[in-house]
Amino acid sequence: MTIRCEIVTQEEEIYSEDVDAVNLPGIEGRMGILPNHSPLLTVLDFGEVIIRRAGEEEFYAIGGGVAEVQPDKVIILADSADHAEAIDLERAERARQRALKAMEEGVQEDPETYRMIEASLRRANLRLDISRKRARPERAVPRLRSEQTEADE
């Protein structure tokens, strides 16, 4: 018995496979989704999506979003999604430092910019966390989307 799991962002489809179970970072706590789950719409928090498939686990860092669950499928509309092993540790660390520095340097007078920097700091932290926990550093490869701009981090 499997359930279809799809992770899509506004820019592309990240993942689409039949899986055994999905664990989601719901805004009111983590939730596990098994096949034949009743229909559910939920808001997702920053966090990791854990997908169990054929006895192995895969991890994706997502930057919030919305998920739709039906008995035969889980669709995750993520604001951003990265496979744990595709996270470049150095890049993420650099991005974190940049965000921290920007916040210290006092852009507080512009709440909009501040919020954006704060969001990128959260993203960077999340990527680092997941990456350290799940992927061996020597296997950390650069992200596939090579055109990704530095500012996005």
Binding site: G26, E28, L41, T42
Partner: peptide, 13 residues
């Protein structure tokens, strides 16, 4: 027609 459970409420969704 699908009868969804909303979590949190429809408003937050």
């Amino acid at each position: 027609t699908a009868d969804y459970t909303y979590e949190p409420a429809a408003e937050q969704l």
